[in-house]
Design a binder for these strands. Structure first.
Lengths: 141, 141
DNA sequence: GTAATCAAGTCTCAGATAGAGACCTTGTGC
DNA sequence: GCACAAGGTCTCTATCTGAGACTTGATTAC
């Protein structure tokens, strides 16, 4: 157990995913995968997508479904998702005007991986809580 | 196309995932799945996990692999992941002391869903970029 | 005619958070 | 005793988040 990894770039089985991306010509700062993951991994966007997975919803319905989101953050999350083609915003010409948000096909295609993550969280939440408790205990030594 | 969704909670095929969680007794503010997803979905943690998936690494090696992370954020991300039981921090009694970070079994178990998300991003990045361009165009009308 | 209401936002401001980078600690080589 | 290396911490500023007041434009209420 005394052997230290040398940090030699030629040592590992793979040169790391980030290095691969760099080899593909992506600067790490501009890596499109990172951009997209940042979007997808943002605090509220996941929850908005999960809500819309149950069917199209209107602005205030989303506000009610996500009781602890502010109007501002909901607007911003919806704009981000619309901008990335994950949902479609439809304005109905009623009085007063109604706005409906619905997943696009691209948005639907994301739900598989996203629900995979949600399932992981559901399955392993007890393990995570146990680890948290253990960490607290180890800190109070 | 004039029919507006009524927002009737009894109308949908499912009462929404969030509503299900509420029915299970989770206040939305304290929903453990949300807590865990927030952790897992934080900006840097995903990238740290991906780097460690290639094998254990030391602090400065991670710093080199993620050129645009600051020391402070790396420290914080590593502490968060350790606290949630996703990685293990090992101090070697050398001079100067070396610290190695490695995924735990729990961390490894997360890689499947996480790589699913990365694959989605890789597969659909062109579609996302196309949507972004289209959105820009539609805004400049 | 004026006021209140509703949907779907926008605006402002305070407080929390992220990032840059200087500094710290312990030990070795020169 | 000076510089350097590892693995951080500390401080300061800039950005972002969230609460909630305000907007807009048409409809009904008085």
């Amino acid at each position: 157990m005394t052997r230290l990894p040398a940090g030699n770039p030629a040592a590992g089985p793979r040169p790391s995913r980030l290095a691969e991306w760099q080899a593909m010509g992506f600067a790490p700062q501009a890596c499109p995968i990172r951009t997209i993951l940042d979007q997808v991994a943002a605090k509220w966007t996941v929850l908005i997508l999960l809500e819309l997975h149950d069917g199209p919803k209107r602005f205030n319905a989303l506000l009610r479904a996500l009781p602890d989101i502010s109007r501002r953050m909901l607007t911003q999350g919806l704009r981000d998702l619309e901008q990335n083609g994950l949902l479609r915003r439809t304005v109905f010409d009623t009085r007063p005007p109604a706005v409906e948000y619905a997943l696009t096909a691209l948005g639907e295609s994301l739900m598989g991986p996203l629900l995979g993550l949600v399932d992981w969280a559901t399955t392993h939440r007890e393990a995570v809580f146990a680890a948290q408790r253990q960490y607290q205990d180890s800190q109070s030594d």
